[in-house]
Design a protein around this nucleic acid. Structure first.
Length: 332
DNA sequence: AAGACGAAAGTGGTTGA
DNA sequence: TCAACAACTTTCGTCTT
């Protein structure tokens, strides 16, 4: 089956990439290391939380994100006992929404061998050649299929750039399919809708990426992405709760290499803030940045406003304003 | 000298008439 | 369609450590 090597063995893919580059950066090395050999660089701990939702491997002790962009190689189903496992396990690749025919189509092998490994007779070979040709033509047949095939590869490209886990990719593909089914694409660019679908999927899966980050890896403007996003969200009735600043905390905190304690503190602050209604109406990234800033100062791990602002992609001024508000209203 | 602070003017997007 | 509006950014000068 043709996608066996795509979805399931991402680690191998990565190591192949690394080798071809010839140079190993530190983070790449970390990523390649078998998990049981990894040690937390902060506290030396060897126990971790595997958070497949966020694709992160987090130190159980101090909360440092050891490895991000982790790839979930497990099955997509759950089994609670041996019997269920027997029942649910099955051979072959799971179907996936990220390939335009859901990975269900049969591929004719490119080798001219029969099932015994023997060479085919010339006559048979010619027949197989013709079959292959027609299959190629049929597989991506009508306009809709072509649209999907292109959009899905675009989705995958953007998702890899952002290092998004597979569940988000699947979700984005599902959203895009719905958009195609309801004929919402006409008059809009495929790239725009693809970017919008990815953005929506990120929010649905609570792996927030800002519109800016999505736009950076897409080929369309922020304006268009935003417009398409609002449009498909409305037309498809996708109920997407407003982004919760808390969802940004782990990522920002680890980019600033803050301790787990500080991370917890920031979450705590945000909890209080949202109870007092300080988070509504404000940009979630700004609020998250301010909470992290306060936490970093409170726990003597001070980061400058500029650094915090940078990872949260807001300005220092915004960090300051939110910071001032929080300190005032929460009397910290 | 770097970082924090604050004022003022400008920007892009939402809302309601 | 347009103006009002809030949130956020940019810029720049001043204060603090």
């Amino acid at each position: 089956m043709k996608i066996a090597s795509q979805g399931l063995s991402g680690e191998n893919e990565e190591s192949m990439l690394d080798n071809s580059r010839g140079v190993l950066e530190k983070s790449d090395k970390d990523r390649m290391m078998p998990e049981h050999l990894v040690q937390c660089s902060e506290c030396g701990n060897t126990k971790f939380i595997r958070d497949y939702e966020r694709a992160e491997l987090t130190c159980l002790n101090c909360g440092l994100v050891i490895k991000d962009r982790m790839i979930d190689t497990g099955p997509e189903w759950r089994a609670f006992d041996h019997e269920q496992r027997e029942k649910r396990a099955r051979a072959g690749t799971p179907t996936t929404y990220t390939i335009h025919d859901k990975g269900l189509s049969t591929m004719i092998d490119w080798r001219n061998r029969d099932s015994f490994g023997k060479d085919l007779a010339p006559r048979k070979r010619a027949q197989i050649y013709r079959l292959r040709k027609w299959q190629r033509r049929i597989r991506v047949s009508d306009a809709m299929e072509r649209n999907l095939a292109f959009a899905l590869s675009e989705l995958d490209r953007m998702a890899s750039h952002l290092g998004l886990p597979r569940n988000v990719r699947e979700a984005s593909a599902v959203i895009y399919r719905k958009a195609v089914e309801q004929k919402l694409i006409r008059g809009r660019s495929i790239e725009g809708v693809a970017a919008a679908a990815l953005y929506a999927a990120c929010r649905q899966c609570k792996v927030p990426r800002t519109l800016d980050e999505i736009t950076e890896v897409s080929r369309v403007s922020k304006k268009e992405t935003g417009r398409s996003y609002r449009f498909i969200a409305r037309e498809l009735n996708i109920a997407i709760p407003p982004t919760n600043p808390v969802d940004y905390i782990p990522r920002f905190a680890s980019q600033l290499s803050l301790s787990g304690e500080a991370q917890a503190k920031a979450v705590e602050i945000l909890k209080h803030a949202s109870m007092k209604g300080l988070t509504s109406g404000r940009g979630p990234t700004g609020v998250a940045a301010a909470a992290i800033y306060i936490a970093s100062v409170a726990l003597n791990e001070r980061r400058t406003q500029r650094d915090v602002a940078e990872v949260a992609r807001v300005t220092e001024v915004t960090v300051r304003n939110r910071y001032k508000e929080l300190v005032e209203k929460l009397s910290l």
